[in-house]
């Protein structure tokens, strides 16, 4: 390829990259509320992986606190093996719950301990029961919570740490609580976590911030369980494509060099 072609190609390529960037940058959604404090999450980086210990502690927080009201219907107990629990530990966790199965040969539904293949047991029979028990409010399912909220992890962490006594000029509605990060500030959920709420087996200090960070990381894993596999495969795919692009660039140059 001669110099002129090279220059044109560079120009076109840079224009092409520019256009793509433009196309991607333009419709950027109001991803985060500006008032949400930014936290550092190690799994958010391009190559970031989950902090397994934090995710496990987060599961403990979910199990002991959140799961009293919030379902997680897309998770199965067996999925917990992915965050480092052994099959026996998973079996033991599952066995703590009783699920309805059946009908059996007599046509009756029956109760049995949960198996690793069962989905997480929901705290309420249905949405109506959940509302009845929660002053009319429906605690959202947590399977996708991090992906389903503007601000993602930062939003969850902020809500958990944003409970305050309402300012003097705010009149709370019956059964509502004041949270400085919740849209409208009035949230039906009572302050769920506080200092010393759970006791960690690994001796991590159980401050409110720590519990909130841990459970947020657990929820991030729950909403995107294949993230690590995805990033690892992505590195291989991009490396392959870069080599392929190099080969094609040279082939193309060689083919065109014969043209006069």
């Amino acid at each position: 390829m001669n110099k002129g072609d090279c220059k044109i190609m560079k120009k076109t390529l840079s224009l092409f990259v520019f256009l793509i960037t433009l196309a991607l940058a333009l419709p950027v959604r109001a991803a985060e509320d500006e008032t949400l404090p930014h936290q550092h999450w190690q799994h958010k980086g391009i190559l970031g992986v989950y902090d397994k210990a934090a995710v496990q502690r987060g599961f403990q927080v979910y199990k002991e606190v959140c799961s009293a009201c919030h379902a997680m219907k897309f998770m199965s107990y067996r999925n917990l093996e992915k965050i480092g629990y052994t099959p026996d530990e998973v079996k033991a966790v599952a066995a703590q719950y009783t699920v309805t199965d059946g009908p059996n040969d007599e046509g009756e539904m029956f109760e049995r301990p949960a198996l690793p293949s069962d989905h997480f047991k929901s705290p309420f029979k249905n949405d109506k029961a959940a509302r009845a028990a929660n002053n009319g409010a429906l605690p959202p399912d947590m399977s996708l919570l991090v992906k389903a909220r503007d601000g993602g992890e930062d939003y969850i962490f902020s809500i958990l740490t944003g409970f305050e006594t309402p300012p003097a000029d705010v009149q709370l509605m019956a059964g509502m609580n004041y949270n400085k990060y919740f849209p409208g500030h009035q949230i039906a959920m009572a302050k769920p976590l506080s200092d010393g709420q759970v006791s960690y087996a690994d001796g991590t200090p159980n401050s409110l911030e720590q519990e909130a960070r841990d459970v947020t990381q657990f929820l991030a894993w729950v909403s995107e369980p294949h993230m690590e596999q995805r990033k690892q495969m992505g590195i291989k795919v991009i490396l392959f494509l870069l080599v392929f692009a190099g080969v094609m660039f040279n082939t193309n140059r060689k083919v065109w060099s014969k043209l006069h």
Binding site: I20, K147, K231, V237, L241, F244, A245, M248, N252, V255
Partner: peptide
């Protein structure tokens, strides 16, 4: 071969950007 190679190169470059989004920023 002129445009089969040229279009192939262009397509691979486009795929690099596409795959980067799929694997590292799918949302």
């Amino acid at each position: 071969p002129y445009y089969t190679t040229k279009d192939s190169f262009g397509t691979v470059v486009f795929m690099i950007i596409f795959m980067a989004v799929v694997f590292f920023a799918p949302l």
